[in-house]
């Protein structure tokens, strides 16, 4: 734990006089302070020659500690908090119904499926729909050069009323609020996420609704395995950063993952067991043999039944 002296720089109240007083009660660090009987300490402060200043010092240290800790929340408060989190519609009605409204703010949702099962299509459609219907930005991290603004414009044009004369302006506004970034290695991704976290903390007006990462697995595949735990550590820390972003700043985070061969020829989601418990929601996509119809089912969800499946078509 940090010595009290470390706080002196930022908080002038914790001066040498205060530290000397603390030292006389064997308090040298913040930890010592925490385990000391504070009422007794306040009583001793009364007997000092400048009791007010010392008391102010004690309150100051307490308020610093309070700021460092997250406040306690009870179930009712949590419920209220949860009710404020919105479902963001993906633009595909069937999927919205399956998820009781769409992608939830504060959740990390994982889309997993074999190649050409529609993962990127759902990402593109959700990004365009959310940028259109909600204020705030959509950030799109792309590792497979598969971000197609043309396809997004197509999705948007489908949803427009043809009589609307301002189609072009709306298109420009919507497309301008989708931010694309290419990432080609896991370290660049971690850098970006740290930077985002930092920016969100420093300026509150920067509003982002959604963060899409397509695809996470292709960034992690080159570092995972091979005897070392290094790759695992990178994967899990990426996962927690995403969760932190989602939780603290109310983003809806979507990541995509691919399938690998499992036992007996069946395929299973990549990235293994330790990734499994990171996303809040896991959705499995599959495509019926070379047709346009696909199905989506819930593999994991905090409060919906798993195994529910709907079919949908990508237009």
């Amino acid at each position: 734990m940090a010595p009290l002296e470390a706080l002196a720089l930022e908080y002038p109240l914790i001066d040498s006089n205060f530290r000397k007083f603390c030292a006389s009660h064997a308090i040298y660090t913040v930890e010592d302070f925490l385990i000391h009987d504070l009422y007794a300490l306040a009583a001793f402060a009364e007997q000092d020659c400048s009791p007010d200043k010392l008391k102010q010092g004690i309150t100051q240290v307490l308020s610093i500690l309070d700021n460092q800790n997250r406040p306690w929340l009870n179930g009712l408060e949590l419920l209220k908090d949860a009710e404020q989190k919105k479902y963001l519609s993906t633009g595909c009605e069937r999927i919205d119904v399956l998820l009781q409204g769409g992608l939830r703010e504060g959740h990390v949702t994982e889309l997993v499926g074999p190649s050409s099962s529609g993962k990127t299509q759902i990402c593109l459609q959700a990004a365009s729909n959310i940028a259109k219907n909600y204020s705030g930005m959509v950030m799109y991290f792309d590792s497979g050069n598969s971000f197609s603004p043309k396809r997004m414009a197509q999705f948007l044009n489908q949803s427009f009323n043809p009589d609307n004369s301002e189609v072009d302006q709306i298109l420009e506004r919507v497309m301008s609020s989708i931010l694309h970034y290419s990432v080609f290695d896991i370290f660049a991704l971690l850098d970006l996420l740290h930077q985002l976290l930092h920016d969100f903390k420093s300026q509150m007006c920067f509003q982002v609704r959604m963060l899409i990462l397509d695809s996470l697995s292709s960034l992690i595949a080159p570092v995972l395995g091979g005897g070392g735990a290094h790759g695992h550590a990178l994967m899990v820390s990426t996962g927690f950063l995403l969760k932190e972003l989602a939780h603290e700043h109310n983003l809806s985070v979507v990541v995509t993952n691919h399938m690998v061969a499992g036992e007996a020829g069946a395929s299973k989601p990549a990235l293994g067991e330790s990734w499994k418990n990171i996303p809040h929601v896991r959705l499995l996509l599959s495509r019926y043999h070379a047709t346009d119809s696909r199905s989506i089912s819930i593999l994991k969800h905090p409060y919906l039944d798993t195994g529910k499946t709907v079919e949908f078509v990508i237009m």
Partner: peptide, 18 residues
């Protein structure tokens, strides 16, 4: 928009890409 773009280096909006 200008500010947002400066936040993440190398980012592009979908409109510019289109």
């Amino acid at each position: 928009r200008e500010r947002r773009l400066s936040i993440v280096n190398g980012a592009q909006t979908a409109w510019d890409m289109l």
